[in-house]
Computed example of a mutant assay.
Amino acid sequence: MQTCLSWAGKTRLIPTAPRIELPRTPQPRDRYLTRKEVEQLIAAADAPHIRLAILLMVTTASRIGALLELTWDRVDLARRVIKLAPNDLGPRKGRATVPINDSLMAALQNAKLSGVSDYVIEWGGRKVGSIKAGFNAAVARAGISHCTRHDLRRTAGRFMAEAGVPIEEIAEYLGHTNPNITRATYARFSPQHLRKAAGALEIRPVVSVRQTKERTL
């Protein structure tokens, strides 16, 4: 709207372009689940495809859109890797090739045996278009505070950082092309974050400080 009004002012369609007060940029969402909350959420998913989707979101750190499009031809159970990108041309945002860990392996093996379509996440033999309703129902049954599907991707990044995984590896896992984006979000969760800086501020010899109690009258 501001662009249109500015153009109208320059072309003298209106005397002058009014100034539009823009709303403040909202604070970034900062919701991370604990490991206990993740376990509760998976346990609360009553439908197998919802449970598998949640497990995939956490263990692959992928967006739900990529997972709903994931087909079995990109899941290599023998080599234990998942190629999230549909091809080498795109879309590739957030779509890395990631390993299959032990937690996910058993679930994928069961899904492969019972599946009847080309899609990893299926319902009634068909591709699933959305898990929003089932996911929100699982959140409610789990009794955890509000969270979104994308919060699981964010949570996966935090879990890796807390385990001391290098930022470059986390960036590759998340499909980030710029590790600085990953560092700005997850570096503070690393157990080594700012440790070197704190070490530079050590005071030697160690000063003993003893508190004195206030005297009461």
Rank of each mutant, 00 (worst) to 15 (best):
T16F: 07
D102H: 06
L84Q: 04
L56P: 03
A171S: 15
G129S: 09
T148C: 12
E168Y: 05
P26K: 14
N178L: 01
R204S: 04
T16K: 13
I64Y: 02
R153A: 05
P99T: 04
A171G: 14
L22V: 09
K127C: 04
L68T: 03
Q27W: 00
Q27M: 10
L201N: 02
A47M: 13
P15E: 12
A187N: 09
V128R: 02
D46M: 14
S103N: 12
R80I: 00
V207G: 01
L68C: 03
D102Y: 01
Y32N: 08
N110H: 08
H176S: 04
L174A: 03
S103V: 14
I131M: 06
L174G: 01
G199E: 15
I121E: 00
N87V: 13
P18Q: 06
L77A: 06
G129Y: 00
S62E: 00
M1I: 09
R24K: 15
I42M: 13
T216Y: 03
A66C: 01
A133Q: 10
E172K: 08
A66R: 03
R74C: 04
G134Q: 10
Y186L: 04
L89A: 13
G175N: 09
P18F: 08
V209F: 06
D46G: 10
G134E: 09
A200T: 06
N110A: 13
N136E: 14
P26Y: 07
T34L: 00
L22Y: 00
A163Y: 01
P26E: 12
L194A: 06
S190Q: 05
R183L: 07
P205H: 00
R154S: 07
R215T: 12
D46E: 15
M1L: 12
D88W: 08
I181T: 14
H49W: 08
G175S: 05
R183E: 10
N136H: 13
A96D: 06
A161R: 03
M160Y: 08
P18M: 09
M105N: 12
Q40G: 09
K127R: 15
A17H: 07
E202L: 14
P205M: 02
F159R: 07
S114A: 12
H193L: 02
T59A: 06
G164Y: 02
A85G: 09
L52K: 03
I131G: 01
A8M: 15
